[in-house]
Design a protein around this nucleic acid. Structure first.
Lengths: 192, 192
DNA sequence: CGATTCTTTGAAAACAGTCAATCTGTGTGG
DNA sequence: CCACACAGATTGACTGTTTTCAAAGAATCG
């Protein structure tokens, strides 16, 4: 299943065959069953994880125990808690699988080694972080300025693939609205 | 006024005296009057801007024309539209001064030159981006899971300095609530 | 001062959340 | 293969919060 990763890298960066082999040599393929956890809050996150197949979610809990989904991740996405990875502090996040999933895993140490050996990988990682920041900012903007209806519409437009793969109550959680509101507004939109 | 910048760099990185002089030699000191604009949406952002003194805000406009504040920035902060800077696309953001402000400016080309000459500056910039991403994620989390009252409380805790320097209706805009709601909830909190 | 900006307050309307019940589809074990 | 359990989605009635609109009061700046 590492072809997904190879294709991904070929499209997004200019890593050569030898470098690719080095990267793969330090990776581990792991299968994660639906509902299985990859990270529970309180423990320190020390991995770099690329998704070859399947779907994961990353969520935090509010004081009252509600789950707030920060990220959905499907094929060709990375997932993890960057903050815990770099600070070494316990994570505030949970990651579990919404489908049976296959991922490639590098430990922090191995990945750091790769970054030091392959400048293009480092550059790639930086571009990725920059784009992640931009989309996080865009999400802040929709969160503070869009109505519920606009948020739903934008989510369908931007992530139609995910919209059709995950339970709706999780989409609601991602958007910061209740499942009932999502259901009602969706019906209202369709009647137009 | 560049002492602020010198102190900032000394605290946050390990740049030596020669490197510091090189960095300064390519900078321009600029005064910005209250209400003056540094960026208007539609134009391309090409600068790196460090604030020595004063206060700026970065906001976007919704479809209906409402201003949504994405960032406040005071002494020792950087401000700018990273997305426009790297993509070269027109910015969706506006930046203007809330107080008379002094900033240090580097053009994109000059700054890229510095990054290539001073590895520690590049490393520093990366750490900064990583932390910016983390705080953006944390802001997403509060935006989708906190009540208005909790958002206000958190803002006061995290940014008391800014809370006391900018108009309240702008704090409301940053939090994604109306000025009336902010006023009412603040009064309610104080009566407790 | 006078003008502008900012903040507060009130009343009504819109909106989203809560609680509870029902409906639907899926998958598992007997 | 059916029955049952379970996760997920929907609906209704109600409550509570936030917005909207309008007006008035306070503070600030030239």
């Amino acid at each position: 299943m590492s072809e997904v990763f190879k294709k991904y890298l070929a499209e997004k960066s200019i890593i050569n065959e030898d470098e690719f082999k080095l990267i793969m040599s330090l990776s581990t393929l792991k299968n994660i069953k639906r509902r299985e956890y990859l990270l529970k809050e309180g423990s320190v996150w020390k991995l770099n994880v690329f998704i070859c197949k399947g779907c994961l979610r990353l969520y935090r809990k509010s004081n009252d125990g509600t789950e707030n989904i920060m990220q959905f991740a499907i094929e060709s996405w990375w997932i993890g808690d960057r903050e815990s990875l770099t600070t070494g502090l316990p994570s505030k996040c949970n990651i579990d699988a919404l489908e049976d999933t296959e991922v490639l895993i590098w430990t922090k140490d191995d990945y750091d080694y790769l970054l030091s050996k392959i400048p293009e990988l480092r550059a790639f990682k930086e571009r990725l972080l920059a784009r992640s920041f931009d989309s996080s900012q865009n999400r802040v903007h929709t969160a503070i300025s869009f109505t519920a209806e606009e948020k739903i519409q934008k989510f369908k437009d931007d992530y139609s693939e995910i919209y059709n793969r995950v339970p709706l109550h999780m989409v609601a959680s991602y958007l910061g609205i209740t499942r009932e509101t999502l259901s009602r507004i969706t019906n209202r939109i369709e009647k137009k």
